[in-house]
């Protein structure tokens, strides 16, 4: 069994494994852990109300799994902050937190400032644009951290298509994941391809890890987190949980282009920081994708070798046939 296969077997969960909230609370109290939930927002008045109501009811009022529940807003111009406050969330404006550091507009900024503002040992981040919000979006992510002391960073992925015709189905992430991030990881960080949806906006992380890593403020935050945590702690620090379906608005190809541009910037910055730019590490020829069968996920490996042919003019046969002279002759 390869390392990735072993990791998939051991560190990939389904949210159903963490249904017993009371048991989780007991374990959390036994270990003396506190959990903060952070929702970064920018103009999400349509979906934020429901997230707050569901999380507050199910994870604070009924079962005290979450100790603190905050919305960190980048300056919404709609009623996001009012709606969130109405239903009992603590609402902070990103620009009011750590004013000495100034204010940058971007989701990563909110996530970063959350580390300063919130007090929990574990911070769980959930995006605000989820239409089918459910307590599993939190329980599934904090569950592995409560249960396993060695786990540092738990990432969400979403599978479970409503209809598929055969037993085995293709699985994986969105378009930017499959077109940009998975090929990059396959080339330079093959182990990170074990994460089925590296760009998902839902994850729970221990404070000791969050305080140690830089935060790109824009689109690159998820990608660079994975690279930095991997370089510092290795693959075993990660876990991932299947949260079933996530319904959200679809983005246009132009928006995905912007996102990819941001991700590439962060990726190349990291490569520079690790000293990989002048001296690229050996590139792998194996491209790694996912397929799923029931609850089992496995990688499909495909060797893709991009061989090269020299310029035609360097061939004597060619020069003879067309009466050309050699380029440097």
């Amino acid at each position: 069994m390869s390392k990735i296969e072993k990791w998939l077997e051991k560190n990939t969960f389904h949210h159903g494994e963490f249904w017993d909230i009371l048991a989780m609370i007991k374990e959390k109290e036994k270990k003396g852990l506190t959990i903060s939930l952070c929702i970064p927002t920018l103009n999400e008045e349509k979906t934020i109300g429901k997230e707050i109501v569901i999380f507050k009811s199910e994870l604070m009022d009924r079962y005290p799994l979450i100790d603190e529940f905050a919305v960190i807003d980048s300056g919404s111009t709609d009623r996001t902050c009012e709606v969130a406050a109405q239903f009992g969330a603590d609402v902070y404006l990103s620009k009011d937190i750590l004013p000495s550091q100034g204010f940058k507009r971007g989701k990563g900024e909110n996530l970063w400032k959350a580390i300063y503002q919130l007090k929990g040992d574990i911070i769980c981040y959930v995006d605000a644009d989820i239409k089918n919000i459910h307590p599993r979006f939190v329980t599934g992510l904090v569950g592995p951290l409560i249960a396993h002391d060695s786990t540092q960073y738990v990432k969400a992925f979403y599978d479970r298509p409503l209809a598929f015709s055969q037993g085995i189905r293709p699985s994986g992430g969105g378009r930017v994941t499959e077109i940009l991030v998975r090929p990059l990881f396959s080339l330079f960080f093959p182990e990170l391809t074990a994460l089925i949806q590296p760009l998902s906006g839902e994850y729970a992380v221990r404070r000791e890890v969050l305080e140690q890593i830089p935060f790109p403020i824009g689109y690159g935050v998820e990608t660079s987190h994975l690279m930095d945590v991997y370089m510092k702690y290795g693959l075993d620090a990660f876990a991932q949980t299947d949260l079933d379906q996530r319904v959200h608005r679809n983005q246009s190809t132009l928006d995905l282009g912007k996102m990819s541009f941001g991700i590439l910037q962060s990726f190349l910055n990291r490569m520079e920081a690790y000293g990989h730019v002048d001296k690229l590490p050996e590139m792998s020829n194996i491209f790694r994708q996912f397929q799923a069968e029931g609850n089992r996920y496995e990688q499909t490996l495909k060797e893709i070798i991009e061989e090269e042919r020299p310029p035609m003019i360097t061939l004597p046969e060619y020069r003879k046939r067309f009466g050309r002279t050699a380029p440097n002759a």
Partner: peptide, 15 residues
């Protein structure tokens, strides 16, 4: 004081 619990039940029944 029970507002969020009540509303969460409405949402979950509704969905």
């Amino acid at each position: 004081e029970l507002r969020e619990i009540l509303l969460a039940n409405v949402i979950m029944c509704g969905e």
